[in-house]
Computed example of a mutant assay.
Amino acid sequence: MFRHALTVSGVVACTVTTLLACTASVPAGATTSATSGVQLQTWLYPGSTGDSQCTAPSEYADGRVKDGALNPEYWTVGDDGSVTLETTADGLCNTYSAANVADLKAHSANQYPTLSGMTTTAVHALVKSKSTRTAAVTKVTSLVNDAGLSGVDVDLEDYWSWSTADFTNYKTFLGQLATALHASGKRLQVDAPAMTEDASFYDYASVVATGVDDLVIMAYDEEFDTASGDRCLPISPYDWLKNVTTYAQSKVTDPDHLIIGLPSYGYSAPDPCDLNSVTGNIQFSAMRQSPGFSSDPATIESRRDASSGEIRWTSGGVLYDYVDSVAMDRKLAVLKGLGVTKVSVWSLGGGNPWFSN
């Protein structure tokens, strides 16, 4: 599942010169209390046997979200609007089976399997009619109820290509799903694009008004907003992260309904940036194989970007960027300074870093 969080430009409020104040003076070293006071959850996604994302269960087995939530991708939306259940019987890890459900429950307080639709064609087909919406709601809620899961995470993307009718029908679908889930005491989470001002293609407040319990803002992939000819931006710069969060808080004023997503992955791109040639969602296990990668602490710190905390270097005309534990801690400190109490991380698998504690 590829993530591209589009942003609408806004006014930068937290500058690099005030970084320490914005990040609550998080030290360069590890901290044992980075996640205190924050409810955590994380996504995991399917892979074939041997793929690096299949290490996710061994990662969450350390109890990192034992009081939080795990969100595996269980369903995909086809171009005809049909919903397919992905299962371990298909040879895919992190997908549905009785054993998978039991393992999720053993290592988390809540489980919100994801319904994933990554194209406008799929989203349009799913939400356009009552019959396709009802079929999807029935299939999803039946499994959640039968398996005793906490609810559903809806990840329907390609927002910027939606028509007004698509967005209207999308909200109708969310309202129908919320009603069905709430009838059984289940919850609805919805993944939303990162924005810093009002836009025609998406509106946070009206989405929450459909009955959504948690709006999850995917505050990453800012590199895709790089101006032509410039070096690619970091995945989630502090200034931008603050602006995305404060805008979301202005539209969703109850903090219990708002979750901010943070990145744990990397990307590579030509330098200067070519947005058509960005390789995103690189797991740490693959990033370690990149030309010029270094595990030397002094080298890592020399490459740490002041605007994002991310590790960035160039080799052979290619820029490499990844988020380590220090960068995650510092981004989390920005959110805690803004009063955020719920955070989701994309993603587990491939040894992607976690918070320092």
Rank of each mutant, 00 (worst) to 15 (best):
T15V: 10
V16P: 08
T17Y: 10
T17A: 14
T18Y: 00
T18M: 00
L19A: 10
L19V: 03
L19W: 02
L20V: 05
L20E: 15
A21N: 05
T23I: 08
T23Q: 03
A24L: 13
A24Q: 15
S25E: 11
S25G: 05
S25T: 07
V26D: 05
A28N: 13
G29S: 12
A30D: 03
A30S: 06
T32H: 12
T32P: 12
S33P: 01
S33H: 07
S33R: 01
T35D: 03
S36D: 13
G37V: 05
V38E: 02
V38T: 09
L40Q: 01
Q41M: 13
Q41E: 13
Q41H: 05
T42Q: 15
W43M: 10
L44Q: 10
Y45G: 03
S48Q: 07
S48N: 07
S48V: 07
T49A: 15
G50C: 05
D51A: 14
D51R: 06
D51W: 01
S52D: 11
Q53W: 00
Q53M: 00
C54D: 10
C54H: 04
T55M: 04
E59C: 09
A61N: 05
D62E: 08
R64L: 06
D67E: 11
D67Y: 10
A69G: 13
L70T: 15
L70H: 14
L70D: 13
L70A: 14
N71Q: 04
P72M: 02
E73S: 13
W75R: 03
W75D: 01
T76R: 01
V77N: 09
V77K: 02
V77L: 09
V77W: 08
D79W: 00
D79C: 06
G81P: 06
S82L: 09
S82G: 14
V83Q: 12
V83W: 07
V83C: 12
T84H: 11
E86N: 14
T87N: 03
A89C: 02
G91N: 07
C93L: 04
C93S: 10
N94Y: 11
T95E: 08
Y96T: 01
Y96E: 07
S97I: 05
A98Y: 12
A98E: 15
A99F: 00
N100D: 11
V101W: 13
A102C: 11
D103T: 12
D103F: 02
K105V: 12
K105A: 08
A106R: 12
H107N: 15
H107G: 11
A109W: 01
Y112F: 15
Y112A: 03
P113A: 10
P113E: 09
S116Q: 12
S116H: 13
G117F: 00
G117H: 05
T119R: 04
T119A: 04
T120N: 10
T121N: 03
T121S: 12
A122K: 03
A122F: 03
H124K: 15
H124Y: 14
H124E: 14
H124M: 13
A125Y: 02
A125P: 05
V127Y: 09
K128E: 00
S129V: 02
S129Y: 04
K130S: 14
K130N: 10
S131N: 07
R133S: 12
A135P: 12
A135D: 14
T138W: 00
T138Q: 08
